[in-house]
C-alpha cells in the first residue's frame, strides 16, 4: 500500500522531530519542580540551564541536545492495518530524512570498521519493536536514546534468594556507579524477570511511561517510590555536581521468570527524555498523542 506507506513515513518524521526538539510536558513539569526544590547551588544552576536550554530549543526548533541519540521505534500494530510489511522501510526512510532535515547528528557507527553510515540508519538501526494487537490502526512511538545514559545500563542475573533486597541494591549501586555520566536528573526503567534480554527490553520500554502516571499495581508503585527516594538520597545531584535531584522518576515492569533466574535490568534515560507517539487510523487520519499542540 503506497498511501499508508507515505503516511507512516510522514508521521514517523514528525515524531522524530517533535521528540528531539520538544520534551513531553510531564518531563518538563518534573524538571521545573526539581528546579524549585533543589537546594544545592551548583545543582540549581544546572537545572536553570536545562530549563533555559529547553526554551531556546523550542524557540529555534533545534534539537535539545547535540546527541540526538539512536532511534528506537515501538510499533503497536493493528493486525488489519494495511501495509504492515512496509512499515519498517518507512521508519528507516523517515529517520534518514530527519537526519538531513532537522538535522540530527549521524550516530550510526559500524562496530568493527568504525565507519559512520552518515544517516542514522544501517544494519539493526533504527531499532523496531513490534506488538501485534487487534484492530486496524497503528500506534507509533519513538524514543531518541542518548549514548551517555545508554552506557550506564546494568543487567544483573541475581540469585533468586536475594529477592527484593537484591533488586533494590542493584538499582542503588547502578545509580551510584553511573554518577554524572547519564546527565542526571535521570529517569530509571527497571525490568524484572523474563530472561536477560526480556528484562532489558522491559526496562527500556518502561521509559516510555509518563512521569505523572503511577503504576497500576500498588505494590510495584510502592517499590518505585522506595527506589526513587533511595536514589535521591545519594546526593549525586544535577549533572553530578551535588544536590537532592538525581532521579526524576522510576518505572518498574516485570515478567514471569525461570525458577533459577532472577534477572534485573536498569536502563537510564537522561533529563533529555525524548519520546513522541502518534496513532494512525485506518482512514489515514492521525492523532498526535504526546505532542498535541506542536507544529508539524
Amino acid at each position: 500500500m503506497k498511501q499508508t506507506d507515505s503516511i507512516v513515513e510522514n508521521v514517523a518524521f514528525n515524531l522524530v522531530k517533535q521528540a528531539v526538539v520538544y520534551l513531553p510536558d510531564d518531563v518538563k513539569a518534573s524538571l521545573r519542580k526539581a528546579y524549585a526544590e533543589e537546594t544545592s547551588e551548583a545543582g540549581k544552576t544546572q537545572l536553570k540551564t536545562i530549563l533555559d536550554n529547553l526554551a531556546l530549543a523550542e524557540k529555534h526548533e533545534a534539537p535539545i541536545c547535540q546527541d540526538t541519540g539512536t532511534f528506537v521505534f515501538y510499533v503497536k500494530a493493528g493486525a488489519d492495518f494495511e501495509g504492515l510489511d512496509c512499515v519498517e522501510e518507512a521508519l528507516t526512510n523517515a529517520t534518514r530524512k530527519a537526519t538531513f532535515e532537522v538535522p540530527l547528528r549521524p550516530n550510526a557507527v559500524h562496530p568493527f570498521t568504525q565507519k559512520n553510515s552518515g544517516d542514522n540508519t544501517g544494519k539493526g538501526i533504527p531499532q523496531v519493536h513490534w506488538e501485534l494487537v487487534s484492530g486496524d490502526s497503528l500506534e507509533l512511538t519513538v524514543l531518541a536514546k542518548g549514548g551517555g545514559s545508554e552506557n550506564v545500563s546494568v543487567l544483573g542475573m541475581l540469585n533468586p534468594s536475594e529477592g527484593l533486597q537484591g533488586l533494590k541494591r542493584l538499582v542503588v549501586d547502578a545509580v551510584i556507579k553511573a554518577g554524572a555520566q547519564p546527565c542526571p536528573p535521570t529517569i530509571l526503567g527497571v525490568g524484572v524477570g523474563g530472561g536477560a534480554d526480556a528484562a532489558l527490553s522491559l526496562a527500556k520500554k518502561a521509559l516510555l511511561k509518563p512521569l505523572d502516571e503511577a503504576n497500576e499495581e500498588a505494590e510495584i508503585a510502592g517499590l518505585e517510590r522506595e527506589i526513587l527516594e533511595a536514589a535521591n538520597m545519594t546526593g549525586i545531584g544535577p549533572m553530578g555536581l551535588g544536590g537532592k535531584t538525581t532521579v526524576l522518576g522510576v518505572h518498574v515492569d516485570w515478567a514471569f521468570r525461570h525458577p533459577a533466574s532472577f534477572p534485573v535490568a536498569v536502563v537510564f534515560n537522561c533529563w533529555a527524555a525524548r519520546r513522541a507517539s502518534a496513532k494512525i487510523n485506518a482512514d489515514g487520519s492521525v492523532e498526535y498523542l504526546t505532542h498535541k499542540k506542536r507544529p508539524r
Partner: peptide, 12 residues
C-alpha cells in the same frame, strides 16, 4: 562543567 545536554544554549 557545562550542563550536559544544554546544546542549544551552547550553540547560541
Amino acid at each position: 562543567a557545562f550542563t550536559g545536554g544544554a546544546a542549544v544554549l551552547a550553540a547560541k
